[in-house]
Amino acid sequence: MVFSGDAVLVSVFTIHNTFAVLVAQRTRENALLRAVGAARRQVVTGTLAEALAVGLLASAAGLLAGIGVAAASRPSYRRSASPSPKAASSSRPAPSPSHSASGSPSAPVRRSFPPYGPDARPRSPRSARRTSTDRAPPAPAR
């Protein structure tokens, strides 16, 4: 999720920069429109309408391209998926040294939101380490 936010932030700056360059290049055209009699508001509205049209068309093209790539990669993903859940869980990548030393960069964000789902109850560290196949230790006799 963090990478999605980063991608959106980078794309916002890229789009803003692109349209700033386009507006700067069109200074002469805008000046001609103003000299012919167009109001400043009409020039700004035309520029914003063009930006909106390009944005909508590019968003639709990106959405369709993403759906196409996802559909094309689905058979490949099914072939590479491991058949047993244990085999999939045993082949986890090793954590990077930076995450081991300082914790995950997204830890402050994860701590800001309460847990959800079937395991959303408070747990002791010992029970959190226990997997679903482990049995809980017997209760002490009183």
Rank of each mutant, 00 (worst) to 15 (best):
V2L: 14
V2Q: 12
F3L: 15
G5F: 03
A7Y: 14
V10Q: 13
V12F: 05
T14W: 13
T18N: 11
A20V: 03
V23Q: 01
V23E: 03
V23C: 13
Q25V: 14
T27P: 11
R28M: 10
A31I: 14
L32R: 11
L33I: 04
V36H: 07
G37A: 14
G37R: 01
R40F: 08
V44W: 14
V44F: 15
T45R: 05
L48M: 12
E50F: 02
A51T: 11
G55S: 15
G55M: 12
L57E: 14
A58E: 10
A58I: 09
A60N: 02
A60L: 06
L63N: 07
L63P: 00
L64D: 03
G68N: 05
G68E: 02
G68F: 01
G68Q: 05
A71D: 06
A71P: 00
R74E: 10
R74I: 03
R79L: 01
S80C: 08
S80K: 06
S80D: 13
S84F: 01
K86D: 03
K86E: 03
S90N: 08
S90F: 00
S91C: 07
R92I: 01
P95N: 11
S96E: 09
S96H: 09
S100V: 15
A101F: 06
A101S: 06
S102R: 13
S102L: 13
S104M: 08
P105I: 05
A107F: 11
P108I: 01
P108Q: 09
P108C: 09
R111F: 15
S112V: 07
S112E: 05
F113T: 10
F113I: 08
P114G: 06
P115L: 09
P118C: 10
P118H: 14
D119S: 13
R121D: 14
P122R: 03
P122L: 11
R123L: 10
S124H: 06
S124R: 14
P125V: 12
P125W: 13
A128E: 13
R130N: 11
S132Q: 04
S132T: 01
A136N: 07
A136V: 05
P138L: 05
A141Q: 02
R142H: 08
R142P: 00
